[in-house]
Structure formats: structure tokens, C-alpha cells
Simulated scan of single mutants.
Amino acid sequence: MTARALTATDLALAGLLDGAGFARTEPPLLIAADLVRDLVGEALARRLYLTTDADGTELCLRPDYTIPVVKAHLEGPRAGEAAACSYLGPVFRHRPGLAGEFNQAGIELLGRADREAAETEVVALALKAARLYTSGPLVLAMGDVGLFMALVAALDLPAAWRRRLAKDFRRSGMLEDDLKRLAEPAHGGPTYRGLLTALEGSDPKAARALVADLLSIAGITTVGGRSAADIAERFLEQSALGTGALDPDQVAVVEKVLAIDTDPVSAESELRAIAGEAGIDMGAALDRLARRNALMAGSGIDLGASRFSTRFGRDVDYYTGLVFEIHDATGSVGKPLVGGGRYDRLTEMMTAKLGLDLKVPAVGCAFWVERLAEAGGRA
């Protein structure tokens, strides 16, 4: 099945985005599959449409626009400059019961140093664009991955735990398991402590190679489909995670922070109170939240009617700050109409892969035009 034909409202959306200064762009349909897998995480990687070129390189049809748009910008002559891009066209994902090809619109704001202003611009334009499709009630839901990472940093956890918590933040149930494990008292250590002591301080790559070699010597090549290298990576990660525990009071602070679900202004106030009482320094992250709240209020966004949850995340791994979705408040469309946020981690990974010495702040969003049309009764 192919994507539905573009409607007059879809074209009006494209015109609105272009008129707001987001130049229309159209990146290639095909992109290297390995690049996409590295950037989007497992959930989306399993839904790719794959093919191979004449040289044997595995490619995929673009599952969204963000990665190819960012890649094209970073490979272009103005990679170090600010850019505002928009798009409207087909993307491709396996979607059980639905067409694998569907239309997506969106905007990407790259290289803007005034981060909170850039985030406000994206959210305000997203709300305005949604109104092209529906006059019905909408809900703006927001969160901030950076707040959680500021909390983790303030707790002075080992690097392995910081990585684990960042990875599990958006995974239902897994973060609770992490906190339970952190709350357990540290014990004497596993029976392989001698090997861990020998590896302590070693180069991580060399340590992985040594463990992989030991497994190969023992005749262990695969377990459950995992290679010796994968098993070695898992072994070292689990070993590092077993080296530290949080004080019960610290776990209680994390749980208090993660329980916040209110409007953005009240969330800021509650977070400052928790941090102050616990003596935890989250000042920089909270100041960013305060600036963004002020800018959003000044742009006409009704923060009192918006929701801010410290547990809110989205289903890809590269978000680093603000995350947001716009929902149909009637519930007739169960999935987000618009979704996006700040994704500096994606540009960091991509510049590293391209060998570029650049820092490129990035924020954007995607419009699910079929859902928007359904919300407005224009399906």
C-alpha cells in the first residue's frame, strides 16, 4: 500500500512551514541502514525496509526525515551555520495493519545557540500548524530528558550507571528495576572478582577483547544468538553496574523527581524544592526550564493547560533535552498528532561518524498528517 494523496491542507501545512522560514528540503529516499540502526535504537530499527546496492552495501528506505535531513546539512558547505529545514513527503516503516508508506511533514532547526528560544519556536509553530487540521481541543505534553540526566549527574554515580539510566529512562519498567538494584546494599562481589580486578583501569576495547578471547578459548562462540564479543560487552557492563549502590535517601529523591506530573511552571517549582531539600545541584537544568517556560508563555502558549511529566520520553534514543507531543484531547485519535524535541545526541553521533569537529544543537518535530486529518474529520 502506498501513502494517501496529499490534500489541500497538507499543502497548506507545507506553505506555513516554508513561510515561517523553514526552507523546504527533499533528501534521498535511500540511506545507509547501518547509520540508521546506530542512531534510532532497536524499536525503529526492526521496522526498516531494507535493500542492497550493487556493491553489497545495505540500504534502507528512510523511516523518517530527521536523519537524512541532518546528514545532508552536515555534509553540505554550510554545516557550521544555523539552518531551518522543513519537509513533506513519504517515509517507510513496517506498520502491522497499516500502509508501510505514509506521508510525514516536519521541521528541523539546526545550529541555533539560543536553545530555549529555538525550542519555543518549534513548539509554537507545531501548535499553529496543528490548527490547520483541527479546531478541536489539543493537549501539549512535555518533558525534559536533560533534567533527569542532571539529577543522575548530581548523584555522582559511576559512569556505567549513568549510561544505563540514560538508556533505560524511556523504557517502561526497566528504570524501576534499575532503581531497585541501586537501592540494594553492595555485597562482597561476584565470583569473577579476580578477573574484574585484573581488568580494572584497562582500556575498554582491550578489556572486551580479552574477555572475548577467554570465551573463545572456553569454546563459547554464541549464546542465545549473541557473539562472544556481545557476551563480553554484556559481562563488562554488568560487572561495572555491580560496583555501586545509592543511599536509600537518594533513591527516594529520584522517585520524588520522577513522580512529578503537572503544568510546566509548577513542575519547576516542585523540582527546585526537592533539589534544595536534598542538597542536590540541578540549578543549570532548572534555569533552562525556567527560561523556556518564560519564552513559551511570552509566545502565547498556554502553560497552565499543558502537561509536564519528568517521566515523559519518546521512542528513540537520541533526545537530550525537551521532548514534546501534541495530542487530540478528545481521545478519538489515540496516538500523537505531532512529536519531537531536542536531539543533540543524534548530531553528536553523526558528526563523529562523518569525522567533523562540530557541535550542532538541534531541535525539531514531525507531523503525522494522517492522524491530524483524522482528528479534524478530514481523513
Rank of each mutant, 00 (worst) to 15 (best):
A84L: 15
A285I: 09
T57A: 15
V211F: 05
D168I: 07
Y318T: 05
R378N: 07
R181K: 14
F312G: 02
G339H: 13
P28H: 09
R342K: 08
L110I: 09
I301G: 02
T134Y: 01
L195M: 04
V91Y: 03
L11G: 12
V69F: 11
L11S: 11
V152N: 02
T347M: 05
A150W: 03
A105T: 04
L286W: 04
L39K: 08
F308S: 00
V211C: 01
F102P: 11
V70P: 09
I326G: 04
A117G: 11
L88V: 05
D357W: 05
R162Q: 14
G377N: 01
S269R: 13
N103Y: 02
Y343R: 00
V40W: 07
Y65C: 08
A252W: 09
A84K: 14
E42W: 07
L155H: 01
A33N: 06
Q104K: 06
S135P: 13
G136R: 12
R292Y: 08
A275R: 00
G21H: 08
R78W: 14
R288V: 10
G364H: 00
A228T: 15
G225K: 01
G19L: 12
R62Y: 02
D53E: 10
C60Q: 03
G242S: 00
Y65E: 14
R288K: 13
D168S: 03
A159S: 14
M142V: 03
A218T: 02
L59T: 04
L215D: 01
S86R: 10
R311P: 03
K128N: 14
R112E: 15
A206N: 14
T243K: 13
G41W: 03
L210C: 15
S299W: 13
P336S: 02
G340V: 05
R226Q: 00
E237R: 13
L195C: 05
E374A: 06
G146C: 08
A240W: 04
T51D: 14
V316M: 13
P248M: 04
M282Y: 04
D357K: 08
A259L: 02
I280D: 09
R193P: 05
H187F: 07
T191F: 12
L337V: 00
A366L: 12
D230H: 00
L48P: 00
M142N: 07
I220T: 11
D18N: 09
L258R: 00
S266K: 07
G80Q: 10
T347P: 09
A352E: 15
L236C: 09
P137E: 00
R37L: 03
L157R: 09
I217V: 15
A117N: 13
D10C: 01
A83Q: 06
D287L: 08
Y87K: 10
L125W: 07
T222R: 01
G15V: 09
L337F: 02
T25I: 06
E42D: 08
A141E: 15
L13P: 03
